Amino acid sequence: MFKLTGTFATQNGPKYLQQLCKHFAHKIDVTHSDTEGTCSFPMGQAVLKADDAGLTIRFELKDQDAVDPARNVIDSHLERFAFRENFKHMTWSA
């Protein structure tokens, strides 16, 4: 397992969590509440947590080759959802 964590400081964390989970639920297994979610991507599982200070996403990936696809799937969707905040990418750490 390879672990990857992304953070995005925003007052709209719960809003973006809901948008991501509802969007991904059309293609993968997703469970979510207002402040927590789990997304089962082919490259691994993501656990999302949000509050008024931000959004955190923790991936448990199958291997290191899944790091870039994991980052890209989140960053590309948040770039569309959080465009008013000039979002470009989360702060990622392994």
Rank of each mutant, 00 (worst) to 15 (best):
F59V: 05
N72L: 06
A82I: 11
W92C: 03
S33T: 14
K15T: 11
V73N: 08
I74G: 00
H23D: 12
K88R: 12
N12D: 14
G6F: 01
F81H: 03
W92H: 05
A66R: 10
R84H: 10
T5L: 05
T7F: 02
K88M: 03
E79N: 12
W92K: 03
R58H: 09
M1Q: 09
D51M: 03
S40C: 11
I28M: 09
F87N: 04
D65V: 00
Y16G: 03
Q19K: 13
H23R: 04
K3P: 04
L17H: 04
C39W: 03
Q18C: 10
D65H: 07
G44R: 11
N12Y: 11
A53S: 15
L61M: 12
Q18G: 14
K22D: 07
V30E: 11
V67E: 10
K22A: 12
S93H: 13
D51F: 00
P42G: 00
S40P: 01
M43N: 03
T31V: 12
T91W: 00
A94P: 06
A82T: 08
A46K: 04
Q19T: 10
N12F: 10
K15Y: 10
M43E: 05
G54N: 00
V47C: 04
E79V: 09
D34F: 05
A70E: 04
E36T: 15
D68A: 13
E36Q: 09
F41M: 10
G44A: 12
K3M: 14
V67P: 05
T56Q: 07
R71Q: 12
K22H: 11
F41G: 06
P14C: 06
D29I: 01
K22C: 05
D51I: 02
G13L: 07
V73K: 05
F41R: 11
A46W: 07
H32Y: 15
L61R: 13
F81A: 03
A53I: 02
D63I: 07
R84W: 01
W92M: 04
T5M: 07
H23S: 05
I57Q: 01
E60W: 00
K49C: 02
H23M: 05
L48Y: 14
P42N: 02
S40G: 06
D75I: 02
Q11I: 15
V47N: 08
A50G: 08
S76C: 00
H77W: 04
Q45I: 14
K22P: 03
T7I: 10
R84N: 09
K49R: 11
T56N: 03
F83E: 08
F87K: 08
H26D: 10
D29N: 08
R80M: 14
P14V: 07
S76K: 11
H89L: 04
H23K: 06
K22G: 09
K22L: 12
D34Y: 08
V30L: 11
H32N: 11
A94G: 14
C21Q: 07
Q11P: 10
S40V: 13
L61F: 13
V30I: 14
T56G: 01
A82R: 12
G13M: 09
A70I: 06
T7S: 08
T91L: 14
Q19I: 11
P14H: 06
F41D: 05
K49W: 00
S76I: 02
L61S: 12
F59L: 06
S33Q: 08
A9K: 15
M1S: 13
L20P: 07
K27N: 08
A82M: 07
T35Q: 14
T5D: 00
L20Y: 07
D65R: 09
M43R: 04
Q11A: 15
S76E: 11
N72S: 13
T7G: 01
